[in-house]
Amino acid sequence: MSAENELTTGTPAPDLLALHESIADLFATQGDWRRAYRHLRSALDIARAGSLRDPLTSSYNRRYLDQRLPGFPATGKLAVALVDLDRFKSVNDTYGHLLGDRVLCRVADLLQEGLPPDAFCARYGGEEFALVLPGVNHRNAVWIADAARARIARHPWSELQPGLQVTISVGLAHGVGSGSRQLHRADDLLYAAKRAGRNKIAYQDRESSQVITHSE
């Protein structure tokens, strides 16, 4: 099992890290440097995997996003959706930060549902997330992003707290270009979705380059 898999199967990473370090110390005191080295490498793998995960939501973090985006070829198809929770400050102010944290965790789970195998979700910062969708065509990228928006809007949030409602706005960039360029375009489109009234997805039409905002 890889260190990253260990992090996502319910085993607390800090315990695994401490265990490998302790075993490495034990073997080192016995002069068994080969086994000590092996466990130190496992400890380093766990620490590295943990450094790429957001500690609250367990999704990937900004560091992972920044590492992955430059690796996508500028000549290939890449979609990047930037997601922002609508009026999240009012959720924290009304219900408290503990509930706000639970909302962020639930949103992260809902965003990761139904992603293609090579796609991933990363917490961009605060209440913003990024969905990175390599190799998908424009139509499927729009469908995936809007399905995530609808899934969150329809989620029974009142089960967490009576009266609670959560929606997201999404800016979706798709086409040929560097990952950083797509992220920048997605950020601009996210503001278009916000200006259009929130709980919407904004993207550029392939033929006219017109910005389209969509919701139910």
Rank of each mutant, 00 (worst) to 15 (best):
C121F: 11
V83D: 00
N61V: 07
S51C: 12
F72S: 05
D205H: 13
A130E: 01
S42R: 10
R181H: 10
V91P: 00
R87E: 10
S2N: 14
L56K: 06
L183P: 00
M1R: 15
L85W: 04
H20D: 10
V107P: 00
D15W: 13
L164G: 01
D25H: 05
K77N: 13
K89F: 14
G50F: 13
I46M: 06
G114H: 08
T57N: 13
P117N: 06
H174R: 06
S169K: 03
A147H: 12
G10Y: 05
T213A: 05
T75H: 10
A18S: 15
S180Q: 05
V166T: 01
H138P: 02
G163I: 03
S59T: 06
S58N: 15
D32V: 04
Y191P: 00
Y203R: 02
S42F: 04
V176Y: 06
S158N: 11
Q182G: 13
Q161L: 10
Q161E: 15
G100Q: 04
A147D: 13
L172K: 03
L98M: 09
Q204L: 05
R68I: 12
L104E: 01
L160P: 02
I144T: 08
S22W: 05
Y95Q: 11
G100K: 04
L85E: 02
H184F: 12
E128A: 11
P134M: 14
Y124R: 01
S90I: 14
R185H: 12
H138I: 14
D25P: 11
T75I: 09
R48D: 09
G71K: 15
H184R: 06
D187R: 09
D54N: 03
T75F: 09
R151W: 04
G10M: 03
V91E: 02
A186M: 08
R139H: 10
V142M: 12
D66E: 13
A150P: 09
L19W: 07
T213F: 05
N92H: 13
H39P: 02
E6H: 08
L65A: 01
L133S: 02
A81S: 04
G114Y: 08
R123H: 05
D25A: 12
N199A: 11
F120N: 07
A141L: 05
A145D: 03
D109Q: 12
G171F: 00
L7M: 08
N137F: 10
I144M: 14
L82K: 01
E127G: 04
H97C: 12
A202I: 05
R154N: 08
Y64H: 13
G135E: 07
R38H: 14
V166C: 02
S215R: 11
D86A: 00
V80A: 03
P134F: 02
R102D: 15
S180E: 06
A150T: 09
R53C: 02
L133C: 03
L52Q: 03
V83A: 04
R48I: 07
